[in-house]
Deep mutational scan, measured.
Amino acid sequence: YCPACDKSFKTEKAMKNHEKSKKHR
C-alpha cells in the first residue's frame, strides 16, 4: 500500500516498482 498515492498493491514487487516510478509523488 502506498499512503502517498492512496493506492494498494497486491504484490510487494508492484509497490516497489511504483515507488521507483516517476509517477510516484
Rank of each mutant, 00 (worst) to 15 (best):
N17W: 07
H24F: 02
H24T: 09
C2R: 00
R25C: 14
S8L: 00
C2K: 00
F9N: 08
K16Q: 12
F9H: 02
E12I: 08
K13W: 07
K23Q: 14
S21W: 03
P3H: 04
K23H: 09
Y1P: 05
K20R: 10
S21C: 05
R25V: 14
Y1G: 12
K16H: 05
E19Q: 13
K13F: 08
H18P: 09
K20H: 13
T11I: 00
A14I: 08
K10L: 00
E19S: 10
H24N: 11
C5P: 01
K7P: 01
F9P: 08
A4E: 13
H18D: 05
H18Y: 02
S21I: 03
K13G: 14
R25Q: 15
A14S: 13
E19P: 06
T11Q: 04
P3C: 14
D6C: 03
Y1H: 04
C2E: 00
K22D: 09
T11C: 01
K23E: 08
C5M: 00
F9Q: 12
E12H: 06
N17E: 08
K7I: 11
N17H: 13
K13H: 12
K13S: 14
T11M: 02
A4V: 13
D6M: 01
E12Y: 07
K16R: 09
C5R: 01
A4L: 14
E12T: 13
R25D: 15
C2D: 01
K7F: 00
H24E: 10
S8K: 13
K22W: 01
M15P: 03
M15C: 02
H24L: 05
K20G: 10
D6W: 00
A14Y: 11
H24M: 10
N17S: 11
M15G: 02
R25G: 15
F9G: 07
K23F: 04
S21L: 01
H24I: 04
K22F: 03
H24V: 08
K13A: 11
S21G: 09
T11N: 01
N17Q: 15
K16G: 09
K16I: 04
S21E: 08
S21Y: 05
Y1M: 15
K23D: 13
S21F: 02
K10H: 01
N17C: 12
H18I: 05
H18G: 05
T11L: 01
S21H: 05
A14V: 04
S21K: 08
E12D: 12
E12F: 05
N17Y: 09
K10I: 00
E12R: 09
K10F: 00
K7R: 07
K23Y: 04
K22P: 11
Y1T: 15
H18E: 07
C2V: 01
